[in-house]
Design a protein around this nucleic acid. Structure first.
Lengths: 177, 177
DNA sequence: CATAACTTTCAAAATAAAATGAAAGATAAG
DNA sequence: CTTATCTTTCATTTTATTTTGAAAGTTATG
């Protein structure tokens, strides 16, 4: 992995680098491209919005790469543009609310992956035939459909759990450390 | 993607192929290698246990590939060996209980991905400094830590939801279709 | 121990994914 | 309309992942 080179203008402390790398690793094991996750992490731990230039410098990546990943992050609803009056340059920031992040990711994954699977399963439910093999197949598909539905339900639960009193309590607790 | 070639001895119907491909696609978007997911799907929709040979034939993959992915699937607890008396050859089957599958996957992901992240975050909580930037960073890490804890809680909930009356009811419902 | 029947390994090849950077495309301001 | 500034695109290159298949390893059996 390429080392993060601190830059004089927008210093990324050791801790931040560590976090950025960890977030990148976590992301890539969840199917989110490493660099995309790292840019997200960088914006998460930056006080203000950063320009493409600053992102490039901090993470030592090319312009095209930065641009493309910033665009993807915006598609996912994880990053927003910020325009400064009297300036041409665009700045980017990540909403700092972790609950919101979680929600966005869940919504996106649901839309992109679960729903297509549900469609396929629904289609396969209608398979013909009455022999032992076919009926075992139909049973299996039914089970998997249930599994998918359950997953969807979990996601919905997750999405709607923002106001849960338990989470609030947990946050307070861990906040005190 | 390589087409699934039906083989005379262990015919994979059109529907099954379709399901196998869909499962493979879904898997790869969740970070599970395509072939691993496909083997899993194949075993899920097969009535009996299959040998390495049969898996190779059905999916048109090499011996080494089949062997390696079957091993990984066993590591994940998604596939089991089955020995037939008087036979040298090993057979493989996937537990047909979708709830069990979900549980296994959740447990594995939790162990492999969430826990390392929690460790990093915990470590970063102890970062020194009192300037504005550092304190914004600490706050952000705290939020993310909460997010990770929340995710873990969701996974635990998922894992323990096997007996949930609602799921049972849902299964009945969708079973009737 | 020798052979046959399987299983596992692993270096090399193939494939897929991500990054680069120069060129082309915008857009504001003069 | 021109220039300066900034953004986007995309053909290539680089890097990472997956697959292959032949060779080595293993274990039952006579």
């Amino acid at each position: 992995m390429k080392a993060l080179v601190p830059c004089p203008h927008h210093a990324v402390t050791r801790s931040k680098s560590k976090f950025i790398e960890a977030w990148g690793t976590l992301g890539s094991s969840w199917g989110v491209p490493r660099t995309m996750a790292q840019i997200h992490a960088l914006l998460l731990v930056s006080a203000g919005a950063l320009s493409t230039e600053e992102v490039m410098e901090s993470l030592q990546i090319s312009r095209g790469n930065a641009n493309m990943n910033l665009r993807n992050l915006m598609d996912w609803g994880l990053v927003e543009k910020e325009l400064h009056v009297g300036e041409r340059r665009e700045y980017f920031k990540a909403p700092k609310d972790a609950q919101y992040i979680a929600r966005q990711v869940a919504v996106q994954r649901k839309k992109r992956e679960l729903e297509p699977m549900l469609r396929v399963l629904q289609e396969l439910q209608g398979v013909e035939g009455a022999d032992a093999d076919t009926s075992q197949f139909r049973g299996q598909i039914g089970d998997i459909y249930d599994f998918a539905l359950q997953s969807e339900r979990m996601l919905n639960l997750f999405i709607s759990s923002q106001q849960n009193w338990f989470m609030k309590a947990l946050m307070k607790l861990t906040g005190k450390k």
